[in-house]
């Protein structure tokens, strides 16, 4: 069953088309990625979903028009956006506090999750005392405890070094298998998208349109060595080909 459904969503900033035509859907418990070149307007799509920007087109959630944006989505921004002045535990309860949950109750809800997120013992630390990978896990914890219908992940590992990123991708895939969050991930990393997703939408350069929808039939758990398997590399080659050699017939030379 579809949770999120977008039909022909468009967005222009002062005459500049950013999103030309975006139609996609995300099913319950499905991990979907939007893969596209930098500057293609991927983040704009999230801004429209969260209500920060206004877009044209039809947007449905559970079949009903998307109106009260905040209610459905928990958003994880590109940088971890942890507040340097709050201890890790108070950073992770932020969303609950904004929802009106008492601080004590919020802490009680978050505390048992620290071990699973590899943060046990760091509850009272400040963000500056944590490594980049730990900060990102804290940011994800802050996102998931909001218990919204769907996670919006905006290049969550983009700012990390390659090794940390690979470790976190594995970890996230594992976490996802346990929790089966409905998630929409923005990324420009083909391998990341293949490793994590059930389906991938490939975006063109600006003005962005969906050029291909690709299902990823790789078995889970996604064994990292399987990523090197012929199926995965065939998919990777196919996606790279789409991204690097845009069809001239469809090409819109707006860049």
């Amino acid at each position: 069953m579809n949770r999120l459904e977008l039909r022909h969503v468009r967005k222009a900033f002062g005459g500049l088309d950013v999103l030309a035509d975006i139609s996609l859907n995300v099913g319950a418990g499905e991990f979907v990625s939007i893969l596209g070149p930098s500057g293609a307007g991927k983040s704009t799509l999230f801004q429209i979903l969260t209500g920060a920007e206004h877009g044209h087109g039809e947007m449905l959630f559970d079949g009903a028009p998307l109106d009260d944006h905040g209610r459905h989505f928990a958003f994880m921004p590109q940088r971890d956006a942890l507040m340097p002045w709050r201890r890790i535990i108070d950073n992770t309860t932020l969303g609950l506090e904004v929802q009106g949950v008492r601080r004590k109750a919020a802490r009680a809800r978050v505390a048992p999750l620290f071990a699973e997120f590899g943060l046990a013992g760091f509850e009272r630390h400040f963000p500056a005392q944590l490594s980049g990978g730990m900060r990102q896990r804290a940011a994800l914890l802050r996102t998931v405890v909001q218990e919204r219908d769907m996670l919006l992940l905006d290049e969550p590992f983009g700012a990390l070094d390659a090794l940390t990123r690979a470790a976190l991708q594995r970890w996230l895939e594992q976490m996802w298998r346990h929790h089966r969050w409905t998630a929409l991930l923005i990324t420009h990393d083909v391998r990341e998208a293949l490793y994590l997703s059930d389906r991938i939408y490939v975006l063109s350069a600006r003005p962005a349109r969906i050029v291909r929808e690709i299902s990823v039939p790789l078995p889970r758990p996604r064994d990292p060595t399987a990523a090197a398997s012929s199926r995965a590399s065939a998919l990777e080659a196919e996606i790279l080909d789409i991204l690097l050699n845009p069809q001239p017939s469809k090409g819109h030379d707006h860049d």
């Binding site: 209500g51 905040g70 209610r71 958003f75 909001q146």
Partner: peptide, 8 residues
């Protein structure tokens, strides 16, 4: 941005 998506 994040706070606003949280409903603040």
């Amino acid at each position: 941005q994040m706070l606003r998506t949280m409903g603040a």
